[in-house]
Design a protein around this nucleic acid. Structure first.
Lengths: 338, 338
DNA sequence: TTGCATTATGACACCGGTGTCAGGATTAGA
DNA sequence: TCTAATCCTGACACCGGTGTCATAATGCAA
């Protein structure tokens, strides 16, 4: 047989109308049990599969979600932040569980991506993932909202719409890091990351960290802070510059694990011992964290639950159900670096 | 305006027929330049996007590829082999470059996945990725071939159809590893991996390794081989069992980096020094490899090119063009573990 | 037997584009 | 001026399903 079987072929074989075939295959209660069975058998025999394009066109939905992954434009083309890859894994699984397909696309944060998928009926909703420069995002969020596009976002908050965001309690995570360092009497802290509002996640981590230190009568010196985006390279250079400026500290909180790993490399290079001289705490608990030397103490985000929540919340939005704002609890994982 | 704009809306605004709108938007040479421009302007203004379902239904194609990622069923649910994640990244990029979307799905190797995407017209072709038990795959490959489904496969060879496979020269990679160890006078070698035909990739790596040793008059003792699947955990246990059986060796070739990382953990635990007592070489060059202690010597596969080749070859198959069998050159990356 | 509800099915319009064909308008050539 | 070629456009069938409506067949009560 050339070409794929259609429902008409089945109808012909079963001696019923195409309408009945369609109903039978979707297990409509309107169709007689015996007919239903016969149609199913023939469908299997002919290796028939419903044409999704036809079905989606008619029903005006797609059983597909789109995942847009934004990369830091400055980061190396070939490498993706392992944290997001881990999220991708859990999102894929969550989609499969809900019977949705997942379209994946990597975008640079600046590109003109808005709603391309949803407008063209490729996907019923969009998941946005990435540590981007969220300032750029706000106008795009507005466009999405205006077009009534269904989307959820990891990390970044959308104006007045906390229900569209799923993220880790970054502020609480920062506090955990501070409490841990204080408990180990390391109060002369450095911070590597971006403490501006361009990276709201990093900013919240810093704020939590700072506030918890303050609550313990410790202040963090601005000179002991250095900017970095979430790459190993960037963490390395930021730390080197602190060292080069002869800035001293006995603890270092990095806004992400990749930064922390770069920082440790810089410290080692300068013959500063981790954790003896400087205790290091990261954020994310990526897989690499436990394998480096020394193993990295970090604040873990549960990517499995995060992925599930993103998908669940998005589906609720699509079904026009109420969605709660979702803040996931972080957890300290103490390892050798502190 | 409620609902999305359709080509009829544009036709109405532009005062032309819907046919003309369709032609204009696809830049058909049949339509007058001025009309074309007017239609484009109105389309942009109305934020019109072609309905992919309708267009795909009519043209019987989808501009979409599907990526099926098979996981070792025994591996931890939450963690995906970083090597495949890296491939995923490059495949995504390659698809984007070619103007194709990518549907991603994780499957267990045993599931009944065959051609679901392609049959239902969700995707024009399928990329199969995974270290699975390829014995199970052969009958499924046959089904795919019978149905004239377009697919390419990473690693596993499909009977008599080398053009459907893209993979690294695993045999050559094994040779590289052996040559490297011999050059460092480490000839008492252990091998951890699966040297059966269930894992053709691992098998080829082992064969290359063994043959190169033989060419240098070194044989590998069967007792110094242990089975492992590609997880850290599995590598750890396999190595522990060798140690527990009091088997001695001064070099270890692991069929993958994850196995090597597990092996190093087991060696360290047994107070065996890497590389002083045992030199370790892995395979894949995953990101973690360079960060562990000591940094892992490994055989690198270029995932960027691999992803590109998979996509390019698949597109050629779809367009019914000739495809060459593709074997990618491996490269030795010498680091501290050897 | 008549009347009405229930069940199972077929006919048909429809989703929103694309491709084909026919035909009007314009221009070139004779 | 007439014919032919070229250019541009509209009408319409079509892709393969889904949802609605009409209807035939059956069952049950009056």
């Amino acid at each position: 047989m050339k070409g794929k079987a259609t429902s008409f072929d089945i109808a012909h074989h079963a001696g019923v109308s195409q309408s009945t075939v369609s109903r039978a295959l979707r297990n409509s209660p309107l169709v007689n049990e015996e007919t239903r069975k016969r149609v199913h058998d023939i469908a299997k025999q002919l290796n028939y599969k419903v044409d999704k394009n036809a079905s989606n066109l008619r029903t005006q939905q797609s059983s597909t979600l789109a995942l847009l992954l934004f990369e830091d434009p400055t980061s190396d083309e070939s490498q993706i932040n392992p944290f997001f890859l881990s999220m991708l894994g859990s999102i894929t699984r969550a989609c499969a569980k809900e019977g949705y397909d997942l379209l994946v696309s990597f975008q640079s944060a600046s590109a003109d991506w808005q709603a391309d998928y949803e407008d063209s009926h490729r996907a019923d909703g969009i998941i946005l993932l990435g540590y981007g420069d969220y300032i750029d995002f706000q106008p795009k969020f507005k466009t999405l909202l205006d077009q009534n596009t269904k989307f959820v976002c990891w990390g970044a908050t959308v104006d007045n719409r906390p229900d569209l965001t799923v993220c880790c309690d970054n502020y609480g995570g920062g506090k955990l890091a501070a409490r841990h360092l204080i408990a180990h009497s390391r109060t002369d802290c450095a911070f590597i990351g971006d403490a501006s509002d361009h990276s709201p996640e990093f900013f919240a981590r810093f704020e939590g960290f700072k506030d918890e230190l303050l609550a313990n009568n410790v202040t963090i010196n601005e000179r002991k802070m250095a900017n970095a985006i979430s790459t190993e390279e960037s963490g390395y250079h930021a730390t080197r510059s602190l060292i080069a400026n002869n800035i001293k500290f006995n603890a270092l909180f990095a806004a992400s694990d990749l930064i922390a790993i770069g920082a440790i490399r810089a410290l080692k290079e300068a013959n500063i011992k981790v954790p003896t001289d400087v205790a290091v705490v990261g954020f994310d608990n990526i897989a690499i964290a436990s394998y480096i030397n020394p193993p990295l103490t970090t604040i873990a985000q549960d990517t499995t639950i995060a992925g599930q929540m993103l998908v669940e919340n998005l589906l609720k939005l699509i079904r026009e159900e109420e969605v709660q704002s979702t803040l996931l609890p972080p957890a300290l994982i103490a390892r050798g670096s502190s």
